[in-house]
Design a protein around this nucleic acid. Structure first.
Lengths: 224, 224
DNA sequence: CAATTATTTAACGTATACATTAAAAAATTC
DNA sequence: GAATTTTTTAATGTATACGTTAAATAATTG
């Protein structure tokens, strides 16, 4: 028998369900939804839905606007810049911390395998596969940094820009340069060169930010 | 007639009241409190208290532990290090952004006046006054950085280390070196030298972190 | 008596009724 | 008829009752 989904509270299921609906675009950015509508849609009373909206508001995925319903967050290019500034800075710090930790090759194996997967995906022209491996690489990088606060913040902000990344995945050129960056970053961390690790990742993220914002602007996506 | 406190929802007043109780040490770090106790203490039902605890949990001030009550966060030296790593990084970014913004002297007047206040407080041996001015300086620095996300995160983390700062305020030497740093940072921002601004602030915060952690360790404060 | 099982308890999680209040609609006034 | 006031509406905010369940206690069994 497979592992069963363990029964969670309605409140937690509401958080999960609303997140899924937001990511799937069923609750589109900028749209408004009454508590009672959401409660009905999720098959529960308003109480757990209200609690879920408070949690999601703190994560920046929506905004509670009394008497106007909750509004699903829609990010402008400027919001995107702000978020990427923070992501860039904190991930770069994580890269630096990871290098300072002097991990063994064994401990860096996931990071390594993610780079290999990205390279294979690029070779196979598989953008979704590349995106998955890229996400795995960044997650693992932040995990190796060892700072729980950074992990939480980065995870939240990644959620917030998830739609924008999905939207632009097929607009951008195949990420070849990106793979070189990841390989170089891996080497810097393996060598324990924290200054290089920080710089490489900083430039990598800054370029990713510029590309994303340009793509959104070029395609007239004012708010996503 | 003076400005009246406008009537807010119980839920919002619960957030404010619990924050105040935590900062005042009436709900000490590590202590547990049932929803029903807090509700009674605040003179309202459990509903708005529950909502408040969710908000405060997302801000890291407490942890909701079903059936064990909410536990007021207690930070270890390691937690403190994590938080200061993030504060250092994001405030340094804010300093760099502030320098790049090329503000006029007029626009930097609050930053200037905060430095003057700190110097006056040190001269007068007034630690509380110095702490207030220092907080004002850092707040204004982050505001000048112009990134709302940084402001939010820094504000949360400052709240989390508030008690630790208060505890160590009278253990530390009078902050003379600190004043020089602030003056140098002001100059770098006024000149628009973002690299210098970043470096100066980074070192400043790193030193503050080391001092704080040393003080907590020396005084046997394992968790605050 | 130790370990296990059954029972009780108490705190939380949820639904629901109702109070409150901002916004919308209708009525009134000039 | 426009502007103001009053009324109505509807959505949220809150209290409360009750169901659910984890933890504590008591009972049982070997």
């Amino acid at each position: 028998m497979s592992v069963e989904a363990k029964s969670k509270s309605h409140s937690i299921r509401a958080v999960d369900a609303l997140r899924a609906l937001i990511f799937a675009g069923e609750l589109p950015p900028g749209s408004d939804h009454l508590e009672s509508e959401l409660a009905e849609k999720l098959g529960m009373s308003r109480t757990p839905v209200r609690e879920a909206t408070l949690v999601l508001e703190s994560q920046g995925l929506l905004e509670v606007r009394p008497r106007k319903g909750v509004r699903i967050s829609a990010l402008s290019a400027d919001d995107m810049r702000e978020i990427y500034e923070v992501l860039t800075e904190l991930e770069s710090l994580a890269a630096s911390l990871a290098a300072d930790a002097h991990y063994s090759e064994q401990e860096l194996s996931r990071l390594k395998s993610a780079t290999l997967e990205m390279e294979a995906s690029v070779a196979a022209n598989d953008r979704e596969g590349w995106a998955r491996a890229d996400a795995a690489f960044h997650d693992e990088l932040v995990r190796l940094g060892g700072n729980k606060r950074i992990q939480t913040i980065v995870s939240n902000f990644n959620d917030q820009v998830r739609r924008a990344r999905a939207l632009t995945l097929h607009m951008r050129p195949m990420p070849k340069k990106s793979n070189e960056d990841h390989r170089a970053l891996y080497e810097a961390i393996a060598k324990g060169d924290s200054t290089a690790a920080r710089k490489i990742h900083w430039r990598h993220r800054t370029e990713a930010k510029d590309m994303l914002i340009n793509l959104l602007n070029q395609h007239g996506l004012r708010r996503v």
